[in-house]
Design a binder for these strands. Structure first.
Length: 479
RNA sequence: CGCGGGGUAGAGAAAUGGCAUCUCGCAAGGCUCAUAACCUUGAGAUUGUGGGUUCGAAUCCCACCCCCGCAACCA
């Protein structure tokens, strides 16, 4: 009997399609792709899911604003996301859209099960409603009793909703998070969640009576399910909940759910509670990364500094963008990015660092050894720490390790002076270059989750019968 | 007392109790295998301020000052 491969299920949030993807979406999805590639490399049975969230009043409004049919609009925007991921070398195993029938079907089964659990009840929500806002507004947000945006007195209205007894899960969720059975990383986010739970959890409304663009409740067609509740369930519906039991059992629970820090409360509190209510396990780990500023300013459509990842990819290439984002900012912390910073790293680390080392080593092998290094021996430097760092989502640390090795190799070449040595002791030159080829091969292997395209070029070049200097620089210098 | 992140050479970052490190830029030298690249050396920081703990603090504790994000399109 062959021992079963370990499974690894990783997800990103599904992105809201009210606008095209920006650099923040790309960041989350790149990180997940790197982990998925790493686990595939380790031989795990890996499933990597991303997708788009397409229901809700805001989507309907965004479509209307553009004068488009809602379905047509969401089709267009969702396609922009998959196109961007393709451009970035991101290869998910599945891309789910909440308007797909497989999702709607699974959500229906989920909602019925939730209702059967007895944790759902009908109630009334009473609050202050700002009419032009089309939303409830908190008492504490009022300025002199008026809506701060519209300078109008909000109406006190009552709305019929279906509620979920989230309050009953307070101690159970607290225990899950505190014990680390549901691991929340980094620790600062875990503390934040713990503090929030300890303030006390209130029941939440899971339906909306006035939102047409959504999935109707199976038992009350006048209401649609609240988008967040529906969206969270994508992680289950995509792997076959309710119609492919075998696949669902194989992959659930998710091993890592990667996201930005703003949506951890939904994922660390509401999401596990919903799962417990229907008798499923909560995810094993939630990893929340930070936010970017651009040149020290927050990313904002109003300011107009929103970065389209496609523009960077067109100019610098997918691998460079992937490298830059993961190297520049420790994963989990906030950070600042800009095209200037990308260019600096591109030229210093990729063109002058990795690209130039590859170029000088292959050229010397062609010149001094007639392109033949024979069999690879073990790399002269231990790079095992790199994959371990990636596995801990410390991408920057792993990459620093690789670049320290590149610098070490440049130094070794300088000290060994193969261009002189070749005249007197050709055997030593061969030993050096075989070592360097092995080192480069190891670097390519370790780097391949982050820079798959580059790693492939390096590996193929070193695997060929006769190694020659590259026809094209790996990373042509920019400007 | 709303919540959170931060303040370290000219710029950007790293270092979580033990020689303050790296990248860009600047200065000098070296090398020629390499993408005008690479290597060496140097200049440049009383680590926001004041106190405290300690043999020893960028790091731990207290107080204060300043910047930024969230609470409102937006990961």
């Amino acid at each position: 009997m062959v021992s079963e491969r370990k499974k690894f299920y990783i997800t990103t949030p599904i992105y809201y399609v009210n606008d095209k993807p920006h650099i923040g979406h790309a960041y989350t999805t790149i990180a997940a792709d790197v982990l998925a590639r790493l686990h595939r490399q380790l031989g795990d049975d890996t499933w990597f899911l991303t997708g788009t969230d397409e229901h809700g009043a805001n989507i309907a409004k965004a479509a209307e604003k553009k004068g488009k049919d809602v379905k047509e609009f969401v089709d267009e925007v969702s396609a922009k996301f998959s196109f961007a991921w393709d451009q970035l070398g991101i290869a998910p195993d599945d891309f789910i859209r909440t308007t797909e029938s497989r999702h709607e079907r699974a959500v229906n089964i989920f909602l019925n099960k939730l209702k059967e659990s007895g944790k759902i009840y009908e109630g009334e929500y009473e609050g202050l409603y700002c009419v032009p806002h089309e939303a409830f507004i908190k008492e504490s947000d009022l300025v002199n009793g008026l809506c701060p945006d519209h300078k109008l007195k909000p109406e006190r209205i009552r709305e019929k909703n279906w509620f979920f007894k989230l309050s009953e899960y307070q101690s159970e969720i607290l225990e899950l998070v505190d014990s680390g059975k549901l691991l929340i990383q980094p620790a600062t986010r875990k503390n934040e969640v713990l503090a929030f739970i300890q303030q006390g959890l209130e029941d939440i409304a899971i339906s909306r009576p006035n939102v047409k663009w959504g999935i109707p409740l199976p038992w009350d067609s006048n209401q649609t399910v609240y988008v967040w509740v529906e969206a969270l369930f994508n992680y289950c519906s995509a792997i076959g909940y309710g119609f492919d039991e075998e696949k669902f059992r194989k992959y659930w629970p998710a091993d890592v759910q990667v996201m930005a820090k703003d949506i951890i409360k939904f994922h660390c509190i509401i999401w596990p509670a919903l799962l417990l209510a229907i008798g499923e396990e909560p995810p094993r780990e939630i990893f929340a990364h930070g936010f970017f500023t651009v040149d020290g300013q927050k990313i904002s459509k109003t300011i107009g500094n929103v970065i389209d990842p496609n523009e960077w990819v067109d100019k610098y290439g997918a691998d460079a963008v992937r490298y830059f984002l993961l190297r520049e900012v420790p994963f989990g912390q906030d950070g600042d990015v800009s095209e200037q910073k990308l260019k600096t790293r591109y030229n210093a680390d990729l063109a002058n660092g990795l690209g130039n080392l590859f170029s000088r080593v292959t050229t010397m092998i062609e010149k001094y050894l007639d392109g033949d290094v024979g069999e690879f021996i073990k790399s002269p430097r231990d790079l095992s720490e790199v994959s371990e760092s990636f596995n801990r989502l410390e991408f920057d640390k792993g990459l620093v390790e690789v670049w320290e090795t590149i610098s070490w190799a440049d130094n070794l070449i300088e000290q060994s002076k193969p261009w002189e040595l070749v005249k007197t002791e050709p055997a030593k030159v061969k030993e050096l270059l075989v070592n360097l080829a092995a080192l480069l091969y190891d670097i390519a292997l370790k780097l391949s989750p982050v820079m798959p395209e580059t790693a492939q070029i390096i590996k193929s070049a070193l695997e060929s019968e006769k190694i020659t200097k590259p026809a094209q620089p790996l990373f042509p210098k920019i400007e």
